[in-house]
């Protein structure tokens, strides 16, 4: 296997490694939301494990989490999910070679794959925003 070039930026390379087009911000948020959901998920496995102790144990565990702070945290997980899932869908297709157009000669006026994929990004982000608003409605208005 060809050796990987050395990452000279170190941890800075995670956020400062490229050109700042809108996809680059989507990439940073995708990474942060992925890590956030993963941390939540690992704790979630233990919290839902309290079902082993029966309904009383579950009930007492849940009452511990009934604070506005945890509720907001849960909403953040929901929002992270909405973004990560829909942006992930775009990446899924892009990385498998779909929705980026066919290779073509660089003839003026130039077209890049951005022309093909950006409309998808915009549509999916509108959808994600819609989910986040509907989720907020459920969490904070209907759910009260």
């Amino acid at each position: 296997m060809a050796s990987t070039p050395k990452n000279k930026l170190g941890i800075r390379g995670w956020v400062c490694g490229g050109r700042y087009v809108v996809e680059r911000y989507a990439y940073i948020i995708h990474r942060i939301s992925g890590i956030g959901i993963l941390v939540y998920f690992i704790l979630h496995i233990f919290v839902t494990g309290s079902r082993l102790g029966g309904p009383e144990k579950w009930h007492s565990t849940m009452s511990f989490f009934e604070t506005p702070l945890f509720k907001f945290g849960e909403y953040l997980v929901f929002a992270a999910f909405a973004f990560h899932a829909l942006n992930g869908l775009r990446l899924f297709f892009n990385e498998l070679g779909f929705l980026i157009g066919k290779p073509a000669r660089p003839v003026f006026p130039y077209k890049t794959s951005i022309h093909h994929q950006r409309p998808w990004l915009i549509v999916l982000m509108i959808l994600a925003a819609l989910f986040i608003v509907v989720g907020g409605l459920d969490f904070y208005i209907l759910g009260e």
């Binding site: 929901f78 999910f81 509907v134 409605l137 459920d138 209907l142």
Partner: peptide, 11 residues
């Protein structure tokens, strides 16, 4: 997520 978080909307 729909089951857990959109429950009030489903209701």
């Amino acid at each position: 997520m729909v089951i857990m978080h959109l429950d009030d909307i489903l209701l």
